[in-house]
Structure formats: C-alpha cells, structure tokens
C-alpha cells in the first residue's frame, strides 16, 4: 500500500441551520487505502461525505485532494467519486451509457471511452448487461453499475455512503468483497460510511469512529475493537459496559461466563433467553438495573428466565 496522502481534511465543521453536525474533524486517507467511517445514525457521517465532495458547505475547515485545496471548488470540478445509498442510476440511459457519462463529460476521445467502459463492465461482471436499462436490473447489479460509473473517470478516491444498505442481505457479503476487490484492483482509495460495525471492521484498512459529529477514535480495526476509548465507543462496538469498584469495564458478550448463583460475587437474574443459531443470547439484569448480554453455547446458557445466575468475565477492558 502506498502511503502518499490522497485526501486531507482539517478542522472541518458543518451545521444544519444553527444545529452543529460536524465539529472540527481531522481526517486523512492515503492513496489506495480503504478507510471506514463508522458511527451510529445521526453521528454526521453522511454530512461529512457530502461536505468533502462539495454538496454541502462547511462552516469552517479545509479539504485537500493530493495537496490541492478544494475550498470553494464546485462539486463537478473536485474529481472525487461518490456512491449514494440508492444507486441513483440515470433511468433514461442504458448501463453502458451510465458508465460512460463521466468520461463523456471529461471529453475523452471516443475510443478511450469505449475501452474504459468495457474494462469497467468486465471487471464488475456487467458486460452482458451493457444494453439493459437500470429498471430491469437487480439491486446488486444496480450498485455494481453505480460503482463502475464512479470508477470509470479514474477518481483517486471514492466516497461510499452506505451503498449496501439498500441491497438484500443474502448478496450483501458477496457485493462487499466485490467492491473491495474492484477498488484495490484500480488502486482507488475509499472512504466508506456505515453504521454496520461488522461490515466496517471487516472491510477497513483503518477505522474512524464518529460520534456526535466528532472523531471519537481511529486506528486499525483490531486495535479499535480491542481498546475502545470510552463507554460510547464500547457500546457502539457491541460491548457491555459494567461499572465495578469505580471503574467502567467493557466486556464483549462472548467473554461473559454464566455460573451457578454462588460461584462469583457478580450476580443477576436472567431476563431473556433466546436461541441465536450457533449459540444462545442470554440477557442478565444486574441488581443496579444494568443489562448484560451474554453469548454462550455452554450448558449454563440454558438458565431459564427468572433464574438467578452469577457472572464472570473472561476478558475485560478498563475504560477511561
């Protein structure tokens, strides 16, 4: 992976009217890097992408692409690709014409357009669909066409705004890896927004966690997952947050062990118990009202609702 800087965002703030949406965001994406912007709904992820691409104006801060400042540059001159939640294909153009659109705008020579469009369609297994209209395609096919259209003009970076949210669950995983492959084949950097933490962690070279319009944490997926910086991030990553002797602990549901009532000082009552395929999901409510989720395939997970149990952590992370 090349480490030269592709996108650089400094001190970016934006607001809807008087409500601040983004505050003082710093962010870098290197050439060819796949960065995932992870955060709950309403954390400002989409606004950040729209501001980077110039569809919204920041209240302050700057955006630069490969060292060139984009401040005040209209969207159409930024040269940043973007994929929206909906594929937003032009319904009056065929698949081929959709993919060619950006190249036509750039006034590339005809034979170059032909070659590039065909290459994009081949890469994303769309060659057979070249003459079809978008309304005859499946959801996954549409998103692939949208990616081909975005990659055709060879942008150095593509912004992806939850492009898999509108796709059926069964094909989502396959589509993700196909996207990931296409981006690394073309050497395109990506800034991918999602609220699906598994999707985000699985795809990313680097993860940036956004919370309330601020960067809460960033780093390699494993590092971020292993060491959440605070309770909010921990909860978002799926941890139970329990306070013990004045400190907050983050405990993954897999790391909660259930035992008979007297085997540990931490006790609670089972309030939900459900089958979840490979294992069971057991919710235990502690005396102070905190609910702890436990995923287990052991026999102790069969404790019925109302039963008293004790809890023990196999691993826990102390939070700041």
């Amino acid at each position: 992976m090349s480490s030269s800087e592709c996108l650089r965002v400094r001190g970016l703030s934006a607001s809807w009217g008087t409500t601040p949406v983004l505050s003082d965001i710093d962010l870098d994406v290197n050439d060819g890097e796949f960065v995932v912007l992870l955060g709950p709904n309403g954390s400002g992820k989409t606004t950040l992408l729209r501001t980077i691409v110039g569809l919204e104006s920041p209240t302050s801060g700057s955006v630069a692409l490969r060292g060139r400042s984009l401040d005040g540059t209209p969207t159409y001159r930024r040269g940043i690709g973007m994929l929206f939640q909906e594929p937003a294909l032009f319904p009056h153009r065929s698949v081929w014409e959709n993919v060619a659109y950006g190249l036509e705008l750039a006034r590339r020579p005809r034979e170059q357009i032909d070659r590039r469009v065909d290459a994009m369609l081949d890469m994303l297994r769309l060659a057979a669909l070249a003459d079809r209209r978008p309304d005859t395609l499946s959801g996954g096919e549409r998103q692939r066409v949208a990616l081909a259209r975005t990659l055709a003009p060879e942008p150095p970076i593509v912004l992806l705004d939850e492009p898999f949210a509108s796709v059926d669950v069964e094909i989502r995983t396959a589509l993700r890896s196909e996207f990931r492959r296409a981006l690394s084949t073309t050497g395109t950097a990506a800034l991918h927004v999602t609220h699906d933490r598994e999707e985000g962690l699985a795809l990313a070279d680097r993860v940036i966690l956004l919370s309330d319009g601020r960067v809460a944490q960033s780093g390699a997926p494993e590092d971020v997952y292993r060491k959440p910086v605070d309770a909010r991030v921990a909860r978002f990553l799926g941890y139970n947050v329990v306070s013990e002797r004045g400190t907050s602990l983050a405990i993954a549901p897999e790391d909660v062990e259930l035992g008979p009532p007297d085997s540990s000082p931490t006790r609670g009552v089972v309030t939900l118990n459900g089958f979840a395929g490979r294992d069971r999901v057991v919710e235990v409510t502690l005396p102070d009202g905190v609910r702890v989720e436990c995923r287990t395939s052991q026999e102790s997970g069969l404790a019925p609702v109302g039963a008293s149990v004790s809890l023990r952590w196999r691993r826990s992370v102390a939070l700041a």
Binding site: P74, Y76, R77, M82, F84, E86, A88, F90, H92, A146
Partner: peptide, 27 residues
C-alpha cells in the same frame, strides 16, 4: 426527480446546466 441523480451527475463532473439538461430534463 430524486436529488441523488443530480448529485451523482455533479460528482461525475457535470456542471449545473449539464446535470439539468442531461439528467433532470430527460426525466
């Protein structure tokens, strides 16, 4: 016309009038 269509055209390099003439008006 969904705004995302116009915005897509813009991110692909369409000036405002091109986006209007190429995408919105035909629809």
């Amino acid at each position: 016309v969904p705004p995302a269509l116009r915005e897509s055209a813009q991110t692909l390099g369409a000036r405002p009038w091109s986006a209007y003439l190429d995408v919105e008006l035909p629809l």
